[in-house]
C-alpha cells in the first residue's frame, strides 16, 4: 500500500523543465560582458578615480553663463534651419523611394529589393558619420550637415513609410485598376490619399530626431551649435557649455512638444 502510494507520487509529477538553455544564455552574456571589459581595458579603479572629476565638472557647470545665451542664438537658429531643410530634402526623396520599395505598389521584385537594400544600407550609418564624410566632400559649413541630415531622415522616413504603405486597404487600388488608370494615376488616386497623413506624421517624427542630431553635427564641422560644445569645453569654459546644454534642451523640448501636438492632430 505504502509503496504503491510512493510510486504514484513519483509518477504523478512531470519532470521540471530543463533550465540549461537559460543558464547557458546567462553565462554567455556574462562572458561577453567580461570579454568586452577586457577588450577596452575597463577598470573600476579608473571609474573610482574619475568620479570625483565628474562631480567637479558638474559643480563647474552650475550656474550657466546667462550672458552667453544671446551669443549662441544665431548658431541655434542655424541648427534648426539645417534640420528643417535636411528633413525636407530627405522627405521629398523618401516619398518616391518608399513607393518603389512597397511590394503592393510595385509588383516587380527587382525594383523593390534593390530599393530596400539601399534604404537598409543608409540606415546602418549614423548621422555624425555621414556628416564627417560630407565634410570631406563639401568642406566645413552647414551644407554637409544638411546633406547628412537629408540622407539620415531619408532612411528613417522611407523605412516607416513603405511599411505603412504595405498595410493600406487594397480596395481603392483595385478600383483604380478597374477604371483602367495608368501606373502614375493609379498611385496618385489609389495610394496617395490613404497615406498622406501618415507621411506627414513620419516627417514630423524625423524632424524631431533631426533637431537633436543637428545639435551635434558641428563636432565634425558640419555646422550648427555642435562646434561650440568643443570650443567651450576645450577652453574649460564650463559655464558656457552649460548654457549650450540648457539652450539646446529647451529648443528640443519646445520643438518636440509642438511636433507631438501636430502629430496627434493628424491621426
Amino acid at each position: 500500500m505504502r509503496t504503491a502510494e510512493l510510486k504514484n507520487q513519483t509518477t504523478g509529477m512531470p519532470a521540471p523543465p530543463k533550465k540549461t538553455k537559460q543558464h547557458i544564455t546567462v553565462l554567455l552574456v556574462l562572458l561577453l560582458v567580461m570579454a568586452s571589459g577586457w577588450q577596452i581595458g575597463f577598470s573600476l579603479e579608473e571609474l573610482m578615480s574619475g568620479l570625483p572629476n565628474m562631480w567637479d565638472l558638474i559643480v563647474q557647470l552650475i550656474p550657466p553663463n546667462w550672458g552667453y545665451f544671446s551669443q549662441i542664438t544665431v548658431p541655434i537658429l542655424e541648427t534648426i534651419r539645417m534640420a528643417v531643410v535636411g528633413t525636407t530634402i530627405g522627405g521629398l526623396l523618401a516619398a518616391p523611394l518608399s513607393m518603389l520599395a512597397a511590394r503592393n505598389v510595385i509588383h516587380t521584385s527587382w525594383v523593390t529589393i534593390p530599393c530596400r537594400f539601399i534604404l537598409n544600407l543608409i540606415r546602418t550609418l549614423p548621422e555624425l558619420l555621414l556628416a564627417a564624410i560630407f565634410v570631406a566632400i563639401f568642406g566645413i559649413g552647414p551644407i554637409p550637415g544638411i546633406f547628412a541630415l537629408a540622407l539620415f531622415s531619408l532612411g528613417i522616413i522611407a523605412k516607416l513609410f513603405y511599411e505603412s504603405i504595405e498595410s493600406i486597404d487594397p480596395g481603392p487600388m483595385e478600383a483604380m485598376t478597374a477604371v483602367g488608370a495608368n501606373k502614375i494615376k493609379w498611385i496618385v488616386f489609389g495610394v496617395v490619399p490613404q497615406v498622406t497623413s501618415t507621411f506627414v506624421s513620419f516627417f514630423l517624427y524625423a524632424f524631431e530626431i533631426n533637431v537633436r542630431a543637428a545639435a551635434v553635427l558641428g563636432l565634425v564641422g558640419a555646422g550648427g551649435i555642435g562646434l561650440y560644445y568643443e570650443q567651450t569645453l576645450g577652453f574649460f569654459e564650463y559655464d558656457k557649455t552649460a548654457s549650450l546644454i540648457v539652450y539646446t534642451l529647451a529648443v528640443v523640448l519646445i520643438i518636440d512638444y509642438v511636433s507631438t501636438v501636430a502629430r496627434e492632430k493628424l491621426t
Partner: peptide
C-alpha cells in the same frame, strides 16, 4: 555624444 564629451573631460 554630448554626454561622451562631458565624460571625456571627467575620465
Amino acid at each position: 555624444i554630448v554626454l561622451a564629451l562631458l565624460f571625456i573631460k571627467a575620465v
